[in-house]
Write a protein that binds this DNA or RNA. Structure first.
Lengths: 146, 146
DNA sequence: ATAAACCCTAGACCTAACTCTAGGGCAACC
DNA sequence: GGTTGCCCTAGAGTTAGGTCTAGGGTTTAT
């Protein structure tokens, strides 16, 4: 079973444009063309494409994905390089995840503040503090005076 | 204590350019100017700026951050809107995190494959399968013949 | 009172990652 | 045999988020 570019677009949630763009960027050297020059994807191609999506969705840049694909095309000799690349990327993802966790905590703190029964009072206090700070430093008050 | 744009840039790891860009985008309406027209950040401003970074780093778009800041400038009356916005964003982050976890598992599967003692054999098998698929469908073999 | 080190704005420029258009070929039906 | 719906390429255009330049004011130390 093989797939046309349209079918692959539907299967992957990438647009046809994006698939062609990826090919232009050297991400799809493994995709063969039929006699009319049409891209023809096999099951194995879909598998590798899924790996590409996986790397893209975790924030890898196209240039680095191309490097990985180049290694894949070179056969088993490039396994060490593939490992190095993926391990480094894995590290980057972990850093990224940790940062998000920290930020998420901060957002939850804000949400808790807004959820408090005396939220209005607390927000007013903050506002008063900031306005006081401005006044104390001879700065204009940028807040809307309701 | 107040801070110049340069000091804030150093404290936040945003460039001076980015800070001015954010101001242009309406993210910093709370920052006052001194008599010479210089931006003058107070402690409270830094606090709110940190919230902005928090939202940015979790992938919120500038337009949405601007919306949040607009709510903040409007005072306590906008608490429900702020909650709605942050809750929606929180949801988005969770979705994003879940996707990353899924992809991370996939990457770990790849790494495990490459770590296997018979990695070369397994990779060769995959390669053979893909090449067979191409041949079976009358397609050219795109792989480098070493 | 001048040099060095800041600050400002407007607007041009850049980069990544698409997204679309124009112009043209192939394939299947009516 | 013509219309419809695919496919192709090259290359222009778009979007988001910066980054930089030019031209000019301010502040501080010498």
């Amino acid at each position: 079973m093989t797939y046309s570019i349209k079918e692959v677009a539907e299967k992957t949630n990438l647009s046809i444009y994006t698939l062609r763009f990826y090919d232009k960027q050297g991400l799809l050297p493994f995709v063969s063309r039929n006699a009319s020059g049409y891209r023809t994807f096999t099951e194995g191609d879909l598998h590798l494409l899924k790996t590409i999506c996986c790397l893209k969705e975790t924030g890898m840049k196209i240039a680095d994905i191309r490097q990985y694909i180049t290694y894949v095309m070179a056969g088993p000799r490039s396994i060490p390089q593939r490992q190095a690349l993926l391990r480094e990327h894995r590290q980057a993802i972990e850093v990224q995840q940790a940062a998000i966790q920290t930020n998420l905590k901060e957002i939850d703190r804000k949400l808790a503040l807004y959820d408090a029964p005396n939220a209005t009072h607390l927000v007013n206090q903050e506002l008063a503090f900031v306005q006081h700070e401005k006044r104390a430093n001879g700065l204009p008050n940028p807040f809307v005076l309701s």
